[in-house]
Amino acid sequence: MTSLTRTRSRIDWSGIAFAIVLTLLIVGPLVVVATWAFTEVWRYPNIIPQKFGFRFWGQTLGRPDVWNALMLSLKLSTVVTLLSALICLPAAYAFARMKFPGRDILFFSFLAGHAFPKFGLLVAIAAIFLQLNLIGTFWGVVLIQLVGTLMFMIWIPVAAFQAVDRRMEEAARDVGASPLRVFWSITLPQAGPTIFAAVLLSFVGTFYETEGAWLIGAPGIRTMPVLMISYINNQMVIQYGAVLSVLLWVPSFIALMFARRVIGGGAFARGFGG
């Protein structure tokens, strides 16, 4: 007993050091970007900016292309997530609950898109899309981003459906519910929080997806991340890019807060079979 308490009260220096390094690595760049977003004058060799202000916020938010890109990104993410849910959730249920020939191969094929270097795959798809006149169109980008959501929207819901206790479903049949009613009233609510997490992840993931949107969407379709990259690449003023990236944190921050309130940490872990 005494040795137990002693080990527990000892300070875990290596753990603390690890946490500090991680925090610096993750938070450090964020702090720099956030600082730049509110900077008006910052010249070498000063450690902190000489002048803070909202001048570049006004300039950035005053540009119509920023608002167009934001609206487009929200529209794209919503359409992609809805379509993905429509396709993937029934498929996930089938994978989790039914036995059919070719089940394992089909399941794997859904994930195969993530087994190769993404950019190579995108270039190959772009070549096909060019033939189909999908380059530079809204639906072309929807299609390419849909591929990116498959992993989250299949894997997590499959695990969620598998985790639902079969006896609960049988008990519902026993009191008189049809199979469809059982799915609607028992299976879906039981798997709900985890599936919601998957939907949220794919929405946020789609919102930030850049490579596909750029390769397939350019030049007609400019989403927020694509716009940000072009600002960072083409403008000498650092603040434009910094303001946009701070702006882009907002949706993921809201999504994360929302997710924490609605589901709590356990559901994510459960979704991955933890």
Binding site: D165, R167, M168, A171, A172, R173, D174, V175, Q190, G192
Partner: peptide
């Protein structure tokens, strides 16, 4: 099962955890 006049009590009780007691019984 839904068309049989039988009622089953399961070993693992199999209550629906997303409903309260009243809703479990009222379903």
């Amino acid at each position: 099962p839904e068309r049989r006049p039988t009622g089953m009590v399961f070993q693992s009780h199999a209550l629906w955890t997303h409903m309260n007691v009243f809703k479990n019984l009222a379903f």
